[in-house]
Nucleic acid binder design. Structure first.
Lengths: 379, 379
DNA sequence: CCAGCGCCTGGAAACGTTTACCCGAACTCC
DNA sequence: GGAGTTCGGGTAAACGTTTCCAGGCGCTGG
């Protein structure tokens, strides 16, 4: 026993008095004579045999491992994705490798390149920003990749997006519908794709509602609670009666600023967050938030990936029972994108697919139109 | 190119006109003649060679992968651990495999057994409960394992524990010190080790403070926000002036129940949570919470594991600069445990190590002694 | 009864590395 | 100048599987 004393296919073959080929076949459920099967089975059981996954991977060329690379595992949105991805992967017999890029682009590129070390069969990447280098690396990736986020049109890579334009509009319309007229907006960094899109959604919904666009009511900031609080402080002089924040952390920060000043939510100001993360329910008052489908995006991403890996079944088979069932039709929504992959290299490569999650407004107490309503009780 | 067209050590050897052995040596930094080295380097670069990690693992008997198995990735405590573990693992050149046991014991056992498939070099396990079967599986684990949680004395497995007894006492003493006299307690399930320990800490601190133990003030429940809210409702008739909750989610739930009834925090009731997760800062009012060192436990766990794997350096080297530096001495605290491993099998196996994180109270607005204090601003 | 056809089985190659072993050349030291 | 030493590099084995290929045997059908 030169290894760790662990039995191998060879030990079994010896013990059962058959060849290793037969052992392998029996263990993989190929046909074999009754007594061969039995002898092998028994020997394996007696020895407590467990197949060596590494050897198997080497031979088979696949590891049954998927990599999920996120900027920051602490972010509730990504946690939701990890959760969904892990569940699907596990069910499909894949292990999940978690990688944190710490929001540095160079690290994202490194992950893409590291696909060539054969460690995992595919990658789900959440990039912070898409640069030229990203696109190049994506196109040349050695294994299937699914991007969670928006890709420029024409890039032949599967992706899953959130529709932040529609999401932001949803929030604004809701606030307008509940009687708010001076709707502030705390955005994240505006030089990102989602940042830009949220701004678009905000503006267009304002217009649609017949509200003027007042630059005094808009703040850009980093993500984070403290940033939200500070931004809120800055916006207060402009006299808003509602605030829409680019994510729940910002919204909670804003709430803190308001409550700290003795203002009441929603009586004095309504607050809307985005992502409908764990935090929304837990905040006080519970936060109305736009669900951009984090879990769903995670799930869709891993399904797309598995679909590429497993040939042509596995994904998109189940009806996805559950609250997100409505978003089934989310495909092919929004933008006029998803062109065929340029007839460059592979020729028979399946066409690139883009899935867009449909946003959904979750109303809670922080935007209740009157005082203590139903929703106010909690959650 | 029967594989995927990816260059192997053989392609390099051909191109450089040397043997594969030389290629391997050069690439692994072994000595070689100047021009050999150069030729190999160049060939590798031109071909864009990336070593096949699987083949390497097969030969070397290690994968440079660590597994972290948690009951539920959604829990902020585990998120903190994942984060810490991922960071340390990455720095040490290991990948992190994340496994969710969904809090089912059978799955925990499965993970332990699956260690034999050679997929990862070691395991960090957070069990929900330790059964006889667990202990057996732990002892027979094919690879090093570190348990995050309390192990019965004598089990020869490294572990990292939180001192919930001291933690609970810390909370109670703090509440007493700020003038509270009827301190309620919302505990999690009491048939778990931590559940039992928190109860012990609660009681002993009450006694120490000269407060009577009133069973009417204690509730057991599941974890979760709603559970916390319901428990709080139940306790209210007993007339508490403070409540200590077994984790932050429960505390937030309790807060919701209180605020929903128009009670003020901390004026009418003080609230203390546990874990000092993300949520504590984000709640309203920001929650005083007992930090049981989630990140630190994660970090210690992976360090212990790496220590076992890498022979005898790597871990416990750095001074762990940062706020937790004080907990350095946390070892050998608490209980009279950590006996030598029973002189059973391995003989020369390094002694089992147990590390205990020292709890730390983080005071925020939810327990401010008077009205609006410093801490109230937000934090 | 014999040819032929399947089903099982075993041998051996292959996946891509690392590494033990050995051999040849160059160098050093007497 | 010859022997001993050192260094570098090549050959091949090994890690544990899966799978291709052939061969053997038993059966069926003519």
């Amino acid at each position: 026993m030169p290894n760790g004393g662990q039995p191998t296919i060879v030990s079994i073959a010896e013990r059962a008095g058959v060849s290793i080929a037969s052992v392998s076949r029996v263990l993989n459920g190929q046909g074999a004579r009754r007594d061969t099967t039995e002898r092998v089975r028994r020997a394996a059981a007696e020895l407590g045999y467990v197949p060596n996954a590494v050897a198997r991977s080497l031979k088979g060329g696949r590891t049954r491992q998927l990599t999920f690379a996120v900027p920051d595992i602490g972010n509730p949105v990504y946690v939701a994705m990890v959760r969904a991805i892990q569940a699907v992967a596990k069910a499909a017999g894949y292990r999940l490798l978690l990688h944190s890029t710490d929001a540095v682009a160079e690290d994202e590129l490194a992950v893409l390149r590291s696909l060539r070390d054969r460690t995992s069969d595919g990658l789900i990447l959440v990039p912070i920003r898409i640069t030229e280098a990203h696109i190049e690396a994506l196109v040349e990736a050695a294994r299937p990749v699914v991007v969670i986020g928006s890709l420029p049109p024409g890039v032949p890579v599967d992706s899953v997006r959130a529709d932040s334009v529609a999401g932001a509009a949803l929030a604004v319309r809701h606030l307008h519908a509940t009687g708010r007229r001076r709707i502030a907006f705390v955005n994240g960094p505006s030089d990102t794709v989602p940042g830009h899109n949220r701004e678009r959604g905000y503006r267009s919904a304002l217009a649609e509602c017949g509200l003027p666009h007042d630059p005094e009511l808009v703040a850009h900031t980093d993500f984070g609670v403290d940033a939200g609080a500070r931004a809120m402080e800055r916006l207060l002089p402009a006299g808003p009666d509602a605030v829409f924040c680019a994510n729940d952390q910002l919204a909670l920060g804003a709430s803190h600023a308001l409550l700290g000043r003795g203002l009441r939510i929603p009586e004095d100001l309504a607050v809307v967050g985005m992502d409908d993360s764990e935090l929304a329910k837990l905040g006080w008052p519970p936060l109305t938030s736009v669900d951009l489908g984090s879990s769903e995006r995670g799930r869709r991403a891993v399904e797309l990936l598995l679909d590429r890996l497993e040939g042509h079944r596995a994904a998109s088979v189940e009806p996805h029972a559950g609250p997100e069932a409505e978003t089934e039709a989310g495909e092919a929504a929004g933008a006029p994108e998803a062109p065929r992959a340029p007839a460059g290299a592979g020729a028979e490569r399946a066409p690139t697919r883009t899935s867009t999650a449909r946003p959904r407004l979750v109303v809670r107490a922080s935007t209740a139109p009157t005082g203590a309503t139903e929703a106010m009780r909690f959650a």
